[in-house]
Design a protein around this nucleic acid. Structure first.
Length: 428
RNA sequence: GCGGCAGUAGUUCAGUGGCAGAACGCCUGACUGUGGCUCAGGAUGUCGCGGGUUCGAUCCCCGCCCGCCGCCCCA
């Protein structure tokens, strides 16, 4: 074990794949801008208490998947602080919202972020210990309209547009409402009661879940259990009138806008802060990790971490999973793009002149690969064909006459171009 | 964290208890200012790491690491 490797669950992203990452991020930024979102960047680590109180002490993420350590105390009198690498970004955004008094503006805050998140899970395809999320939050005081079902519908419509624009075809939007915390508690009891007479016929996992966390029974994938699960009460029946009306308004707006969705009564997300609307965009071909993105409303999160009443809705997309999906959908996405031209100096004596020419062309915005005069022309052609669309030959003749030799690989056509017209020719 | 399958050249993968292989890619030349096609030649490597069995282990056994599939969970 003498050579060092990237640690388990982490990886290097290399060209040409990084071009795809950049395209995804650029597209997301452009779409967010059209919906008038601004970017927020929060620290990669936070006080551990933020996640314990925000995400929920009992969730798997907090109870067993966080990278947590004790920071050194600065003074002997001071207690060491427990810090944690962020496992998600919503809690950090809401913390910043509170800390900077963003609610005092009275306006809705529309914030997006992108960056690495950390969870200590067993790695798998589409699941890494350091992974990247692109997400956005709409949050603000109720007077700014933050509770409006229109906000939910707008966010969902934006996501549908973003996925379409990214070229991710074949997604499905699964939608549900988990109501208020009181609704959820009521539903939990109803589920627990309904499971008593049937749980003995279910799988071992379900027997355990029925006791520890009845909601998770809904996630069971054992075929034999499905008919039983279908007979269980649905959370929609446990919602109070306000939550029912809210959800109806969300779906009405989606119907009007023509955003397709399916109601999934079993979609009960695992983070404690979710209320009312919850959703997931999924895609086949991702295997067990089929969720491209997930999100929902979190009307009580700000108060849970000591802030003012600030209802909100947000989502997080798994950028790694977007990349996997796009690669599977379209192999050509992985193809490297080529430079506009490769400059081939003929002889080492022309290297300096070649750099000067490259500088001129690059200043014109052209994408130039600079060769090496020590190469034989044959080798220059070989290298040029792999990295650029055209080759520009710079020999003594060209330098003296100011007329350069340019060959276009796709057509095989070779022409003489005056240096003053070269940039214009290469940009074609 | 649990169960299962894998790890050999840059890549995709064969293979055998006794000299480490193919294809593609790479390098050189045929061809001194013209690539792609062709031909000739060349280099690929701690056979994931450590231990054990054996005269001898890339191969068999054990442990570890890492990846993948499923569970769990989630993006």
């Amino acid at each position: 074990m003498s050579t060092l490797k990237a640690v388990r669950g982490t990886r290097d992203l290399l060209p040409p794949e990084t071009a795809l990452w950049n395209r995804i991020e650029a597209t997301a930024r452009a779409v967010f801008a059209r919906y008038n979102f601004g970017e927020i960047r929060t620290p990669v680590f936070e006080d551990t208490g933020l996640f314990a109180r925000g995400v929920g002490e009992e969730t798997d993420i907090v109870s067993k998947e966080m990278y947590t350590w004790e920071d050194r105390a600065r003074a002997q009198s001071e207690k060491p602080q427990s810090l944690t690498l962020r496992p998600e970004n919503t809690a950090g955004v809401v913390r910043a919202y509170i800390e900077h008094g963003l609610g005092e503006s009275g306006q809705l805050q529309k914030l997006y972020y992108m960056g690495p998140q950390f969870r200590r899970e067993r790695p798998q395809k589409g699941r890494y210990r350091q992974f990247s999320q692109i997400g956005a939050e709409v949050i603000g005081p109720p007077s700014a309209g933050s509770e409006s079902p229109l906000r939910d519908a707008e966010v969902l419509e934006m996501l549908a547009s973003l996925l379409d624009e990214l070229g991710i075809s074949g997604w499905t939007l699964e939608l549900n409402s988990v109501g208020s915390p009181a609704d959820r508690a009521r539903y939990n009891e109803a589920l627990r009661a309904a499971l008593v007479p049937v749980v003995s016929q279910m799988c071992e996992d379900c027997k355990r879940r029925a006791v520890t966390n009845p909601l998770r029974v809904l996630d069971c994938k054992v075929p034999a259990d499905q008919p039983i699960i279908d007979t269980l009460p649905v959370i929609a029946d446990s919602l109070d009138e306000a939550s029912k009306a809210h959800f109806a308004a969300v779906t009405a707006a989606l119907d009007a806008a023509g955003v397709p969705y399916t109601r999934n009564h079993r979609l009960v997300r695992g983070l404690d802060y979710y209320t009312r609307t919850t959703f997931e965009f999924t895609h086949g071909g991702l295997g067990a990790q089929n969720a491209l993105l997930g999100g929902g409303r979190y009307d009580g999160l700000s108060e849970a971490i000591g802030g003012p009443k600030a209802p909100g809705i947000g989502f997080a997309m798994g950028e790694d999973r977007l990349v996997l999906t796009l690669l599977a959908l379209n192999e050509q996405n992985a193809g490297a793009q080529k430079a506009d031209a490769y400059i081939a100096p003929l002889g080492e004596g022309l290297n300096a002149a070649a750099l000067t020419l490259a500088r001129e062309l690059r200043h014109q915005g052209l994408w130039i690969e600079l060769g090496e005069g020590g190469f034989r022309l044959k080798k220059s052609f070989d290298a040029a064909d792999k990295t650029a669309r055209r080759i520009v030959i710079l020999g003594e003749d060209e330098l003296q006459s100011g007329i350069l030799t340019v060959k276009t690989f796709s057509t095989g056509v070779q022409t003489k171009i005056p240096r003053t017209e070269l940039a214009a020719f290469l940009s074609l």
